[in-house]
Structure formats: C-alpha cells, structure tokens
C-alpha cells in the first residue's frame, strides 16, 4: 500500500477543516473548541489540535490529510506536526482567504512560519472565498508572488466542493501516482459537499454582537486596547496600566500627526514600541479606524501584527 501525506494550513476561516471534510473517505477527526482569538468575530469554533482524514486514491494507495489549527495560540502544534506526523508529507497546501484585507500578508506570514518545511517539498497556494471576493484574481496573485520571489502553483478553489479541492490533490500527486481515476473519485466524494443549501449558517450569525474591543481583549496575549475612528477620536478604551495608557495615547497622537504631515511618504501602517520586560504597545491604522494594543511581551511582533490585521478587518463586517 502506497501511503502519501499532505498538510493543509492557513489562517482561521480559510477553509482547512472544510477542505479536509470535502476530501475524506472516513469521518474526519476534528478538535474544535471555542475561539479565543481575534477570529471570535468571525466564528465561534476553531480547530485546536488538528484535522485528519483519509482519501483512498486507488486500491493500493491512499492519502492522509492533515490540517493545522489556524489560531496562533496553537502554533506549537504546527511545529509538532512538521517535525513528526507530517515530516514525510508530499507537500503543503496553504489556504488563503481571498476576503482578507491583504491576503499576501497571510502568505508572507505562513511562508515564514513554514519556511524550513517547504524548502524540501511542494507548496500549493489554494485561494478560497473567491465567490465572496473576486479580487485579487489569479493573474494578480501570480504577479505579486513573482515579486515576492515565490514561484509556485496557485489554484482557486471552493473548500466546500469536493471536486474543486480535488484539483489541489491532482496537482500534487498526479505525476507521482499514475492511474488514479480522478473523475470517479470526484463523483464518489460528492456526498461530502457542503455547498450552499447544506451549510449551517448559525455559527456566523451568533457572532454579530461582539464588539471589536471584546474581540481584542479576548485575544490571547492582548491585555488592553483602544479603538479609534477615522478621525482618530477614541471610540472605546480599556487599558489598566496608566503609564501604558499614556504612552499609547501619545503614540496615537504621533501617528495622527504623521498621517497629516508625512502622508506623502506612504500609508502609516503601524507604530510599535517594545522593551525588555515591557508590554508591547502598538498602533495599527487603516482608512476607517485605528487600533491601539497593549500586548504581552512574549508575543512576537509578527503575531501582534497578524492579530491586529484580523481585528481591524473583521470589525468592518
């Protein structure tokens, strides 16, 4: 029996669990729990350990499907999976949610995190949610990835549609395992489809009443936050440490002044202040709002930035 493995990763809500469910011939193993991250505004349940399924390719070959947890707080599982369970995987499928404010930030984040893993194996970028957000399109992805020095395959898929996700597997294994009847497999997996009509929308509906501040303060490692509007007026604020509160206010003022005076140099994206044994203070800005965060010093700057991007994006929905 030939055994293959593939690892799915990507941000929360990118469709990892759904994609694996679409492909699996067995009842998938998933380990969902309540979201405790910036994703809380988007969904209530998230994978904590991993997803697992099996796809029978032929009588004598099968594919083991593994999915990482999306939330950064379970990042230790990524390491564990890479070094043990899927160290011999054929490839990494990076699912990218096209509705994200900047999907390329996600790509960059995951490429950094999985750099050592993908050096030795195939990477496929599978773009999801393009039915909700058409742009960036395939052409744009290819150009941007080329600029980033990343030469890889990009496929647009619908994680709910087994035949669509199957294209990723075909791309990964077709040259390696000959004689697979992909069409018959697609028909067989049709029962796994969760395309509209079968999808439960209740989880999304439940999340509408959660404010950005609640979401921020519910995020691991964030201990305080300030939410500002497009005029940089404070909408709400909760920072216990008075010194940090004053510094963060000064940082917000500085960013506002820079937006007016130095806007010609480009968009002021963020201002971050760190120090040994100090909570990290940061201000993130987009056109409609700004967010000041006070976070645990153990969180890396990249993680703080990722969390802030999630919070700002989902607060617009």
């Amino acid at each position: 029996m030939a055994e293959y493995k593939v690892l799915f990763t990507g941000s929360v809500c990118s469709g990892k669990t759904t994609a694996i469910k679409s492909l699996s011939d067995i009842e998938t193993v998933d380990t969902d729990t309540s979201v405790s991250d910036s994703a809380i505004r988007r969904k209530r349940k998230t994978t904590i350990a991993m997803d697992y399924g099996i796809l029978d390719l032929k009588e004598d070959s099968r594919l083991h499907l593994y999915g990482t947890p999306g939330q950064e707080r379970f990042k230790f599982m990524w390491e564990l999976m890479m070094s043990d369970l899927v160290h011999d995987a054929e490839g990494l499928v990076l699912l990218v949610d096209n509705t994200r404010a900047d999907p390329f930030k996600d790509i960059q984040f995951y490429i950094e995190e999985f750099r050592d893993f993908i050096v030795r194996r195939r990477l496929i970028i599978a773009v999801t949610h393009s039915d909700e957000q058409e742009f960036p399109d395939h052409h744009f992805y290819m150009n941007r990835l080329k600029e980033m020095g990343l030469f890889t395959t990009v496929l647009f898929i619908d994680a709910r549609d087994p035949s669509s996700v199957l294209e990723v597997i075909k791309e990964l294994l077709d040259h390696k395992e000959k004689g697979i009847d992909w069409e018959a497999m697609g028909e067989r997996l049709e029962v796994n489809s969760t395309m509209p009509g079968a999808v439960k929308q209740d989880e999304v509906a439940q999340t509408e009443d959660i404010s950005l501040m609640d979401a921020a303060l519910n995020t691991r490692g964030i201990v305080g936050a300030i939410h500002l509007d497009d005029k940089r007026e404070v909408l709400s604020s909760k920072i216990e440490n008075p010194h940090n509160r004053e510094i963060l206010k000064a940082m917000v003022n500085l960013v506002s002044a820079l937006e007016k005076k130095a806007g010609f140099l480009g968009h002021i994206e963020d201002l971050i202040l760190c120090g040994k044994d100090q909570e990290t203070l940061s201000v993130f800005v987009d056109e409609e709002q700004a967010l000041g965060l006070c976070s645990d010093r153990e969180l890396s700057i990249n993680v703080v930035k990722q969390q802030a991007a999630d919070l700002l994006q989902w607060s617009k929905e």
């Binding site: 010194h243 004053e246 000064a250 140099l265 201002l271 760190c274 120090g275 100090q278």
Partner: peptide, 26 residues
Amino acid sequence: SFNYVFATAAKMKSKHDEAHLEIGDK
C-alpha cells in the same frame, strides 16, 4: 518620532527601548 516616543516612555518611567514605524514600503 523616536525622540518623541522614547521621551514619552521615559517620562512614564517605562523601559521601552525599541520602536518600529512602518511607513509606505519602508
């Protein structure tokens, strides 16, 4: 920016000693 932000931190007796400002592509 850095003079302002470090002076503010010092005034608040904090030991923040590193700042990053992302502006445009820099």
